[in-house]
Design a protein around this nucleic acid. Sequence first.
DNA 1: CTTGGAATGTCAACAAGGCTGACGTATTCT
DNA 2: AGAATACGTCAGCCTTGTTGACATTCCAAG
Lengths: 166, 166
Amino acid sequence: MQNQRIETGQNLLFLTDDQLRKGIEAMFFAYRGFTADPDRILSAQGYGRAHHRAIHFIHRSPGTTVNNLMSILGVTKQSLNRVLRTLIADGLVLSRVGDRDKRERHLTLTDAGAALERALSDAQRDRMRAAYRAAGPAAVAGFRRVLEAMMDDDLRRHYHALTERG
Amino acid sequence: MQNQRIETGQNLLFLTDDQLRKGIEAMFFAYRGFTADPDRILSAQGYGRAHHRAIHFIHRSPGTTVNNLMSILGVTKQSLNRVLRTLIADGLVLSRVGDRDKRERHLTLTDAGAALERALSDAQRDRMRAAYRAAGPAAVAGFRRVLEAMMDDDLRRHYHALTERG
DNA sequence: CTTGGAATGTCAACAAGGCTGACGTATTCT
DNA sequence: AGAATACGTCAGCCTTGTTGACATTCCAAG
C-alpha cells in the first residue's frame, strides 16, 4: 500500500500513504487556524462555535426552519435549541411562527445578529482571503475540489444547495 | 469589497466575498467528513477525538514529551493528562521517564496502541485517498497550498517539523 | 549545598456543547 | 378521530476544554 502501482497512464505518487498523511495533518492544523479568529470574537461575548454555526447558516438561509438547521448542522434539536434559546433571548435571532405551517418556526437574524455575523465572517474571510491570495487561483480551485470530494453525500447536498443559489 | 478591483495583472475574481464564503463552507462540511470515520471507530471503543489526536501524534513522534504534545495539540496539560491517563491505563500508550532529563516523560504506543492507530488512520486515509483520486494531483497540490497558508505561524512550524522529516 | 525554576502529575470545580429519553403542545395530514 | 410532524423543554450523562492550587522531582545557577 505504501508504494502504489501505476494504474492508469498518469503518475499516482500523490496517492502514497505519506502524501495522504500530509493532507490529514494539514487539515488538522488548518482547521485550527480556520476557527481561531471567530473563536476570539465569540469568547469575548460569551458565545462558542455552536453559536457561530447557527448564526452563519441563519444568515445564509433567512427564514430557515429549526428542522432544516438541525440537518445542516448535524446536531440534535436539544443541542440546537440550547444555542437558539440564548441567541433569541439576547436579541440576535428572531423566531416567528410559519404562515403556511404554524408548527414551524422561521429563523432570521435581527440587526444585532447581522452585526455579529458580519464581524465573525469578516474575521474568517480575512484569513481565507490571505490564504487564497498566497496560494493563487489555481490552488484555490484544487482546494475546493478536494474538500468537496471529502464530504459525506448528504453534507455535499447541503453544500451545493447553499452555494448554487448564493 | 464585494467586487475586488484588479490589483495586479491577473484576474482576482477568486478573491470575491462569494468565493471566500464557498471556501469557508467547504471547510466546515469537509471537516465533518474528515473526522466521521475515525469518530465511529473511537466511540465504539469509548474514546473520543482527543484520544485520536494524542495517538496520532505519539505515533508520528515516538518518544515525544508531554510538553511537546501539549504545544502541538494546543490544549492544557490537564486536558491532555486526562486523555493520556486513560490511554496508559488501557495499555495503549507507554510513558517512560527520560534518560537525560528525568522530569520528562517520553510517550510511545504499545502494540495495542499501534493497532488502534492503524485502524484509525486506515479509515481516515481511505477517505482522503478517495478524495485525492477524485480530484487529481493538481487539485491536491492546490489543496495543500491553501491549507498551509491558512495555518497560524506556530502551527505551520509544527506541521513542517512533522512533514519534513517524515 | 541550597535554592529557584522548570516539567510533570493530580485534585477540584466549572462550562460548553454534544448525546439520549421522555413528555407536552400545537398543528397538520390521513 | 387518530397518527404524524415540528418544536420546546426538562433531566441526566459524557467528552473535552478551561482555571486554580498544590506536590513532586529534578536541573542548574549561585
